[in-house]
Design a binder for these strands. Structure first.
Length: 271
DNA sequence: AGAGGTACCTGGCAGC
DNA sequence: TGCTGCCAGGTACCTC
């Protein structure tokens, strides 16, 4: 479900309700996520205040008094702010309940998500310390991509979806950014010139910013922290548009599989 | 080191 | 209606 724009939308949606608030109780109904939810999450987090929520790639970091919660939504996860009296549904695995009566509810049917408690710097956690550059940071540009791509024979789409290269670009926005940049998704990363990487970096930033401004993309079931769907779906140029005419040239959008993931592109506009 | 495949898990939908 | 197979927004880990 969530790529960078959806995670960022979630972050912005939940922050006003829980930053500065004190945790009263943690309920873990199902601890079997990507890694088991540690009992320390409940024992240590209770009584602490949340000071800030940041994002690194697709990870959310909730900073509390003596440690942090590392949270990932996986393929199907979402976070909602509900009243603590709201009945939990089938896949509502974890609740973090605050003094103000609000509840941060983690919902994840496929359970590829993650909730960890750490007392150390979360950015130094093994899952996070090797994540690549933030595409929305000032330091991200085509030259960075160009340098990292030398000697990389993988297809460019898989290259930009590699979280150790760029953080947060998932399957939807990889296809979209390549379309905007006019680059064929099967092209080998090492065979793309510096100038084209500059255009690609700009396209990645552009599509991520645009998606965030629309509250992300809802294909099936993404909802923000406040329960709203994302409205970027109607702005998608190629993703999930297989067989439909390219909005630039009219040729049918092609759908292929790359590393078991769907890729969409225009054979005419992307070279 | 890089690349490719596999595993984790549930639900929805198309096709029979 | 019900079964089967495939697909889905992610990523870590294994092998070669």
């Amino acid at each position: 479900m969530p790529e960078l724009p959806e995670v960022e939308t979630t972050r912005r949606g939940i922050m006003p309700y829980i930053v500065g608030e004190k945790v009263m109780r943690v309920i873990v109904r199902n601890k079997h996520l990507r890694q088991p939810v540690s009992g320390k999450l409940s024992t240590e987090l209770v009584g602490q205040r949340i000071h800030d929520i940041t994002r690194r790639g697709k990870y959310l970091l909730m900073y509390a008094d003596t440690g942090s919660v590392i949270l990932h939504l996986g393929m199907s996860g979402s976070l909602r702010i509900v009243s603590k009296k709201t009945r939990p549904g089938k896949h509502d695995h974890v609740d973090i309940i605050f003094e103000n009566g609000r509840c941060l509810r983690f919902h994840d049917p496929r359970r590829f998500g993650l909730l960890l408690w750490t007392r150390a710097d979360p950015l130094q956690h093994p899952l996070l310390k090797n994540i690549g550059i933030e595409p929305l940071a000032d330091t991200f540009n085509g030259d960075v991509l160009y340098k990292k791509s030398r000697g990389r024979r993988v297809a460019i789409k898989q290259f930009i979806m590699n979280a150790h290269i760029v953080a947060g670009v998932g399957n939807i926005y990889a296809s979209e950014a390549l379309f905007l940049a006019g680059i064929h998704p099967l092209r080998s990363a090492e065979k793309i010139a510096r100038l084209r990487y500059r255009r690609l970096a700009e396209s990645i930033r552009q599509v991520l910013h645009a998606a965030i401004s629309q509250g992300g993309t809802t294909l099936r079931n993404f909802v923000s922290g406040e329960g709203r769907p994302g409205y970027f779906r109607q702005h998608l140029k190629v993703y999930d548009r297989g067989g439909l005419p390219c909005q630039t040239c009219g040729a049918p959008v092609r759908h292929i599989l790359q590393g078991q993931r769907s890729t969409y592109y225009c054979t005419n506009c992307q070279r």
